[in-house]
C-alpha cells in the first residue's frame, strides 16, 4: 500500500457561539415555557396550559413527521396529507364506537386496548390508502410542484367526499373511554388525563422514530436520501421503494394523529385534517424541510404558543403561529434544522 503523507489532523473545537447556534432550536422550547410562566403568573394555569400545549404539539408532530420526510426524500409537496388525518379519525373513532363495552368500562386495560385497536385499524387503513394515493395520484407528477399541489388537493377533496358518503355529512361527537376522562390534580393544576397520555404517546413515537432513523440501515438510507437522493441511488439503493415505504408510514402516522386529535377534541369532521394542515405546514416549514427533530421542536412551539396566547390574549391566538413562523424564518430562513437545502 502506498503510504499517505504523515500528518496528524485534528478537528477544531466549535466556538461557544457556534455551539449555542447549533443548540438554539432545542433551547427554544424551555425558553418558551419559561416565558409562558413569567407571562401567565399563576403556576396552576401555567401548568395546565403547558401540558395542553405539549399534548397538542405532540399530536401535530405525529401528523407532520411523515410529511416532512416525504418532501425531503422525493421533493413531493403533498397537500392531500390532511385527508389521512380525517380518514384515520373516522376509522379509529368508528372502531371505538363499535366497542362500547370496552370503552364504557372503568378499566384502564380495557380502555387502552380499545384505543390501541382503534389506532391499529386506523393506521392500517390509512397506510393502505397512502400506498394507493402514491401510486395513483403522486407518482405521475414527480418533479412537477404545481401539478403536485393541484392533484393532491384534488385527492384531498375526493377522500373528504368519500368520508361524507360512508359516514354521512354530520360531525360525530364522542366520549373518551371511561378512564381517560376527567383530570388529575397536580400542584393545584387540573391536568386532563388524556392530554398526559397524548404527551407520553407522542414522546414515545418521536423516540421510536429517532431510534429507527439513527440506529438502523433503513433510517440511514432515509436520512441520506433526504440530503442527496441521487447519491444514495448511486450506492445501489432503490430510493423509490424507500420513498413508497416512507409515504405509507407517513400516511399511517397521519391516521394515528387523526385518532389522537379526534379523542382530544371529542368531535370529528371530514374537514378536520384539511384544517389541521395549516398548523402541520407551519411546523414542517419552521422545523426545516426533511427534519424530524425540527418538526418535533416546531410542533411543540406551535402547541405551546397557541395555548399560551389563547389564554393571555384570545384575539391574537389565530395569528400567533403565523407570527411564530415569521419570527423563525427571519432568524433562520430555511427553518430551524433544515436537512434539505433550498431546492
Amino acid at each position: 500500500m502506498t503510504a499517505a503523507p504523515d500528518h496528524a489532523p485534528t478537528m477544531t473545537r466549535l466556538s461557544a457561539a457556534d455551539r449555542l447556534a447549533k443548540a438554539a432550536p432545542f433551547l427554544l422550547v424551555p425558553v418558551l415555557i419559561l416565558a409562558g410562566f413569567l407571562a401567565i403568573g399563576t403556576t396552576s394555569s401555567w401548568l395546565t396550559l403547558t401540558v395542553s400545549g405539549l399534548a397538542m404539539g405532540m399530536m401535530i408532530f405525529v401528523m407532520a413527521s411523515g410529511l416532512t420526510l416525504v418532501f425531503g426524500l422525493m421533493d413531493v409537496i403533498n397537500f392531500g396529507h390532511g385527508a389521512f388525518v380525517s380518514l384515520g379519525a373516522f376509522v379509529g373513532i368508528s372502531v371505538l364506537l363499535a366497542l362500547p363495552g370496552w370503552t364504557a368500562e372503568p378499566s384502564l386495560a380495557l380502555n387502552l386496548a380499545a384505543v390501541l385497536l382503534a389506532i391499529a385499524c386506523a393506521m392500517v387503513l390509512t397506510g393502505l390508502s397512502g400506498w394507493a394515493f402514491e401510486r395513483v395520484i403522486v407518482r405521475p407528477v414527480y418533479g412537477a410542484h404545481l401539478k403536485q399541489i393541484l392533484v393532491t388537493v384534488g385527492g384531498l377533496i375526493v377522500i373528504e367526499q368519500l368520508i361524507h358518503v360512508i359516514w354521512g355529512p354530520d360531525e360525530i361527537f364522542l366520549n373518551r373511554p371511561e378512564t381517560l376522562q376527567g383530570a388529575v390534580t397536580f400542584a393545584g393544576a387540573a391536568l386532563e388525563k388524556y392530554r398526559i397520555l397524548a404527551v407520553v404517546f407522542g414522546l414515545a413515537i418521536f423516540l421510536a422514530m429517532r431510534l429507527i432513523l439513527r440506529r438502523t440501515k433503513i433510517g440511514l438510507i432515509v436520512r441520506a436520501g433526504v440530503q442527496n437522493g441521487q447519491m444514495v441511488e448511486s450506492l445501489g439503493y432503490r430510493l423509490r421503494l424507500v420513498f413508497i415505504g416512507v409515504f405509507v408510514a407517513g400516511s399511517a402516522l397521519a391516521g394515528l394523529g387523526g385518532v389522537m386529535w379526534g379523542l382530544y377534541q371529542e368531535v370529528i369532521t371530514a374537514g378536520m385534517g384539511e384544517r389541521m394542515m395549516i398548523l402541520v405546514f407551519i411546523v414542517v416549514i419552521i422545523g426545516g424541510l426533511g427534519s424530524v427533530e425540527g418538526a418535533f421542536i416546531g410542533a411543540l412551539l406551535v402547541g405551546l404558543m397557541q395555548n399560551y396566547i389563547a389564554f393571555l390574549e384570545p384575539k391574537l391566538a389565530l395569528i400567533s403561529n403565523i407570527g411564530l413562523m415569521t419570527a423563525i424564518l427571519m432568524w433562520r430562513p430555511q427553518g430551524m434544522m433544515p436537512v434539505v437545502k433550498a431546492k
Binding site: 440501515k217 440511514l220 438510507i221 436520512r223 441520506a224 440530503q227 442527496n228 441521487q230 447519491m231 444514495v232 448511486s234 450506492l235 436537512v339
Partner: peptide, 15 residues
Amino acid sequence: GIFTDLTVEENMVLA
C-alpha cells in the same frame, strides 16, 4: 456527494 449530516462511519456503512 458526501452526506454531510451523517458521520464518516455512517457514510461508509451506507456505502
